[in-house]
Design a protein around this nucleic acid. Sequence first.
DNA 1: GCGAGTCTACTGGTCAGACCAGCGTACTAG
DNA 2: CTAGTACGCTGGTCTGACCAGTAGACTCGC
Lengths: 245, 245
Amino acid sequence: MFEPVSPVRAYERVVEQIEEAVFTGRLRPGSRLPSERDLMTQFGVSRSTVREALRVLQSNGMIQSRAGDPRGPEVLPASPKNLRKSMSRLVRAESMSLAELLQFRMVLEGSAYLLAARLRTDAQLAEMEAAVRSMSDATGHAEFSDADVAFHDAVARATQNTLIVVCSNVVRGVVLDLIADRLAAAPDRQALMSAYLRHHSEVLQAIRDRDGELAARLARQALYDYYADWVPEPERDLLAALVTS
Amino acid sequence: MFEPVSPVRAYERVVEQIEEAVFTGRLRPGSRLPSERDLMTQFGVSRSTVREALRVLQSNGMIQSRAGDPRGPEVLPASPKNLRKSMSRLVRAESMSLAELLQFRMVLEGSAYLLAARLRTDAQLAEMEAAVRSMSDATGHAEFSDADVAFHDAVARATQNTLIVVCSNVVRGVVLDLIADRLAAAPDRQALMSAYLRHHSEVLQAIRDRDGELAARLARQALYDYYADWVPEPERDLLAALVTS
DNA sequence: GCGAGTCTACTGGTCAGACCAGCGTACTAG
DNA sequence: CTAGTACGCTGGTCTGACCAGTAGACTCGC
């Protein structure tokens, strides 16, 4: 029941103090940490200890080091990159069923499109329209998926909710991994792509009309239409129930 | 546009290979890594490099080392702890607002209660009823919150969707941290507790009746009623819009 | 035969000192 | 004023050393 006042490990103390400096704003993003050799004298520890502390901070996305840069390690602005990493780790580690993942996506992506439809600016709408146009003009898979990413990105910014976007994106990635082989073997990939495009156009129209409810329903419907075939029968009903709700 | 086949930094290669072994299941939770001295010969790098790699893995919550343990570093099971850490970090850096977190909770918890209402077994319903009874009988804060945990746990099991439950739990924890100090200063804590209990009873009734839609709406409404006061005016409307949808 | 204590061979944590390639800056040559 | 270069520092890696701590074997008294 005793919580040690200061961490036992030397490197943990270093991590903690630097973290504190960042959180309290004493170290702002873009500013530089002292060099490793300076830090070791400041904290009274060896360079290996300093380095281990810096590695931890780096793996947490708080700093970035470049070999040879005399200005020292850079303090990075907070970014959802790490959230994405730990989320992805968690999703990958728990062996979850496809149905579970799709349920999650239907719930979150529905809300994402709802928010995007209500909050989007005209500029963001224009970005989405351009992305969908690129998709329909695309000649190869690479172009198509690049445009797809651009579309999702524009939607993400419009929602103004990082958390919803990051979580659904991560799960989207895992789902794609999960069915990648089955998708590659699909005989009618061209048909899938054009169906995909059609769904996007419909959703885009709903976003244009600022009809959040419709956009949400379309997004859930699209997910169901795509993936239901890959979900075993008994679980499929669970997804169907979420389409309309 | 060139993606290096193998990371430039030596320690990154080590991290990647061990991560890979964990993800593919070659290294299961509970099993042990070779000692640092063994790893350095296996990977052909120095001990400092091995240690930096292990520090990264440790900070990602994948392994745990104890000084002196001859069995070597232990591979840990996946846990949402890290997810929560990176989320808290974003909140502290003010790149994520309370409104965002609550939006997320309204979306996910709504679905959680919807699923629980539809899928719950009679035994699970009994557990929930017992928990709510414990809450109303509770004399102290500790008892009350223990019973609350039990209730949420029963609901979580009923949903059959780990991901939804884990994510909303993590965010719930972050939100509680965020308003902990403000809550402690609240003059009418007793009133808050009884309002909390009332909401739970209502949701329980909906779950008993297997009315998923109602349970979801009540859950969202409860979140709004509780937290809206703490959300700055301009963002509050976003939450209100999600109550009924 | 069996538990209590001890011993030991390892572990991870930390330190010191060294070398290298890489980078920014200030100085230099044109 | 610009192009080029040399310098002094940086981070990345390595070697080798010492210490405190631990698990498991080993011993001893019963």
